[in-house]
Nucleic acid binder design. Sequence first.
DNA 1: TACGGGATTGGCT
DNA 2: GCCAATCCCGTAA
Length: 225
Amino acid sequence: MAVINSVHSGPEHSPERSPEQLRELLSGDARKVAPLLLGSVLSHNSHEGTVSVRITELEAYMGPGDSLHPDPGSHTFRGPTARNAPMFGPAGHLYVYFTYGMHYCANIVCGPAGTASAVLLRAGEVVEGRHLAQVRRPTSKSPRDLASGPARLATALALTTADSGRDALVEPFGLRLPSAPARTYSSGPRVGVSGDGGSADYPWRFWLPGDDTVSRYKAAKVRRP
DNA sequence: TACGGGATTGGCT
DNA sequence: GCCAATCCCGTAA
């Protein structure tokens, strides 16, 4: 199955935003917000130290209410639950879930409170605290692998379900947009999403073309009878 | 209560 | 490229 890539241009905007200005910006549709977050840096300060990751790949997930057509690939497709509650909350907060019995994946919530919209942080480059990230990710063979993949990124930043619902825009976290937004970016089908949600009808994966931390495209595992 | 599958990763062939 | 690991969540009964 061919991967459909397309290149878009993004608008220019200025840097230096307060948490509340950032929250306002994130309060839009995740599909519009995702490209703006390419190149942004998410930080986490813990007692171990600080790790910061420059985001190079994202996926948008929508809720049952505000999207034009429902998103069958989203955890919120069938409505609110205890797990996905943060996705219905205010923008700028984290939604972290546990999967495959061993991995955590982190989203930044988008859209106004009451709607479910979020961006999954799929990959990035560790730009601060590389040593600590390597300690947290002992199986990583090169700096490029430290946060190349959603569960790897969450591990490098030490994000777990305990952080789900917390505000990513204030201490101990922090988000900084690039001084200038990505001039170009690519988009295509989301990775590992089974059913219609993973089809070309939902080209809601966004990445920085040519960045070597971007994960390889992989279709969802096909269910066999 | 029970069951099926998962927004993945890393090791092995 | 293939597949095991490992357990939580959502759905059905």
